[in-house]
């Protein structure tokens, strides 16, 4: 237990809306080692983003807590930098300035102005965006925006890098390209990464371990699977790899057999009665 770099213990989460309390998460326990790449996978609405937001400190768990590198999480901070699903770049700032705003704040005391500039450029080079420093977010493609989002997060030198469905909004080719880049960067920097995804291939390709979540309400961790594929991983070579397909099969069977989203008519009616409040809460 004490070896874990990131420790999530006994986290419960309830959302209360209009006086109705909905249990979203129950008893989430997870230890992540330093340098490990973890994926959280589950059906939409199961609360996996809620787990990530609790680790990020954007949400406060109803019970239990999160410890990162020996310190309890109670507020958001640059040590748990987040890459948002929709990139969340500030549209009035250039590519450079979007990274700068994070770097200026995080390293104001520890780096000189020249070092900060160097560091911003270094991180943008790392995601291959060094050529578009003065562009505005509206002038670059979705994939490029997400690269800048990743550079901004990496530039904060986070202890844990949090990725919230980072490639969800991208087309398949761009997504594959960015996945490769994330693998390359991960091999270089040995970051501890926690990624939310609903893409089985993505989870198997990128992760050291895959955390599979049961359906909500009261979602919890259903199964954790080690992915023991050698790195660097090559998506084309792995396509015919028996182990790769075995892992894929494991995750798919968890999602579509054990946690199949079937609702009999009775429970669907009951849910409809509990109304939109629940939907909104689960989505949050």
């Amino acid at each position: 237990m004490s070896k874990a770099y990131l420790n999530i213990s006994r986290v419960d989460m309830d959302f209360t809306r209009n006086g109705v309390t909905n249990p979203v998460l129950r008893d989430i326990n997870l230890d992540v080692m330093r340098g490990e790449f973890i994926s959280l996978i589950g059906h939409s609405g199961c609360g996996k983003s809620t787990v990530l937001n609790i680790v990020a400190g954007l949400l406060k768990a109803s019970a239990g807590g999160v410890i990162v590198d020996g310190k309890e999480v109670n507020a958001p901070g640059p040590d748990r930098a987040l890459v948002f699903q929709n990139h969340s770049l500030l549209p009035w700032l250039t590519v450079y300035q979007n990274v700068e705003i994070a770097v200026e704040k995080t390293f104001r005391r520890t780096k000189s102005a020249a070092e900060r500039r160097e560091w911003i450029l270094h991180n943008l080079e790392m995601v291959n965006m060094g050529h578009a420093l003065e562009r505005l977010p509206s002038e670059i493609s979705g994939g490029m925006k997400q690269r800048v989002g990743i550079a901004r997060a990496l530039a904060m030198e986070p202890k844990v890098l949090l990725l919230d469905e980072p490639f969800g909004a991208l087309d398949a080719l761009t997504r594959a390209h960015l996945q490769d880049e994330v693998m390359r960067i991960q091999a270089e920097l040995h970051n501890t990464v926690m990624m939310i995804t609903h893409d089985v291939d993505e989870a198997v390709l990128l992760s050291d371990r895959i955390v599979m979540m049961t359906n909500g309400p009261s979602a919890t961790i259903g199964q954790i699977m080690d992915v023991e594929l050698p790195r660097p991983r090559d998506r084309i070579a792995l396509a015919d790899d028996a182990r790769y397909n075995h892992y894929r099969h494991e995750v798919l069977s968890f999602l579509y057999e054990k946690q199949r989203k079937v609702e009999d008519i009775g429970s669907r009616r009951a849910r409809a009665r509990s109304g939109d409040a629940e939907k909104a809460a689960v989505r949050a």
Partner: peptide, 17 residues
């Protein structure tokens, strides 16, 4: 957008910033 607020919280901008 809520995301901009979240960005500000993650990089810990104070009220004035």
């Amino acid at each position: 957008p809520e995301d901009y607020r979240n960005v500000a919280r993650v990089i810990r901008l104070n009220g004035f910033e």
